[in-house]
Amino acid sequence: MAYKEPTFQDRAALAAQAKQKALEKLKAKPQIDPEVAAARAAARQAREAKELQRRAEKAAAIEQARLDKIAKAEAELAAIEAEKQRLIDADIAAKAARDARYAARKAKR
């Protein structure tokens, strides 16, 4: 017995049969109980709310870390500025002491 090439009509009939079979299978499926559907929807909403809260907490933690980093950088900058001002004041004091010694030497002459 040789292989027979299926015609277009054969393929179309097979496709129609498969479609009808899938439709019958879908129709045979029992209806979803409204209580079960409501319970599933409530569970889904609870999961979504929990996920939304988790995302909000994560975003808040990231923002707090960013603010902490900024505050730390500002504190370091303030410390550097204070040290710079202390060095400037020390330099001014040293110059004033040098000028006082110079004026004292000049006054002796």
Results as ranks from 00 to 15, higher is better:
residue 91 D to T: 07
residue 48 E to K: 02
residue 21 K to Y: 04
residue 65 A to Y: 00
residue 94 A to F: 05
residue 7 T to C: 01
residue 42 A to S: 12
residue 67 L to D: 07
residue 30 P to L: 01
residue 48 E to V: 02
residue 7 T to V: 00
residue 2 A to S: 14
residue 25 K to W: 05
residue 2 A to G: 08
residue 79 A to R: 14
residue 24 E to L: 11
residue 1 M to N: 10
residue 31 Q to P: 04
residue 95 K to M: 08
residue 62 I to K: 13
residue 12 A to R: 15
residue 48 E to Q: 12
residue 66 R to P: 02
residue 21 K to I: 08
residue 31 Q to A: 15
residue 108 K to C: 07
residue 79 A to I: 04
residue 40 R to V: 05
residue 77 L to D: 14
residue 55 R to S: 10
residue 79 A to L: 08
residue 50 K to V: 01
residue 27 K to D: 04
residue 65 A to M: 06
residue 6 P to M: 01
residue 25 K to H: 11
residue 69 K to V: 03
residue 11 R to M: 14
residue 26 L to T: 07
residue 91 D to A: 15
residue 86 R to C: 03
residue 60 A to S: 13
residue 108 K to T: 07
residue 67 L to P: 00
residue 106 K to I: 06
residue 107 A to Q: 14
residue 106 K to A: 09
residue 97 A to P: 03
residue 81 E to P: 00
residue 59 A to F: 09
residue 64 Q to A: 12
residue 89 D to T: 04
residue 80 I to R: 09
residue 99 D to H: 15
residue 64 Q to D: 04
residue 105 R to D: 13
residue 68 D to N: 03
residue 80 I to V: 08
residue 88 I to E: 14
residue 108 K to Q: 15
residue 94 A to C: 06
residue 42 A to K: 14
residue 41 A to I: 07
residue 63 E to T: 02
residue 52 L to V: 07
residue 68 D to R: 03
residue 104 A to F: 12
residue 2 A to T: 13
residue 16 A to R: 11
residue 50 K to D: 11
residue 3 Y to C: 02
residue 71 A to P: 01
residue 11 R to Q: 15
residue 7 T to P: 04
residue 16 A to T: 09
residue 65 A to G: 04
residue 98 R to F: 13
residue 108 K to S: 09
residue 50 K to A: 07
residue 79 A to F: 09
residue 104 A to G: 06
residue 64 Q to C: 06
residue 28 A to E: 05
residue 5 E to S: 04
residue 93 A to R: 12
residue 29 K to P: 01
residue 77 L to Q: 15
residue 63 E to M: 02
residue 83 E to N: 11
residue 18 A to D: 06
residue 90 A to D: 12
residue 64 Q to K: 09
residue 4 K to S: 07
residue 63 E to L: 05
residue 35 E to Y: 09
residue 42 A to W: 09
residue 84 K to F: 05
residue 65 A to F: 02
residue 38 A to V: 03
residue 74 E to F: 05
residue 28 A to Y: 00
residue 72 K to W: 01
residue 71 A to F: 04
residue 105 R to Y: 11
residue 18 A to L: 13
residue 12 A to D: 11
residue 67 L to T: 07
residue 66 R to K: 12
residue 2 A to C: 10
residue 69 K to Y: 09
residue 52 L to R: 14
residue 15 A to L: 13
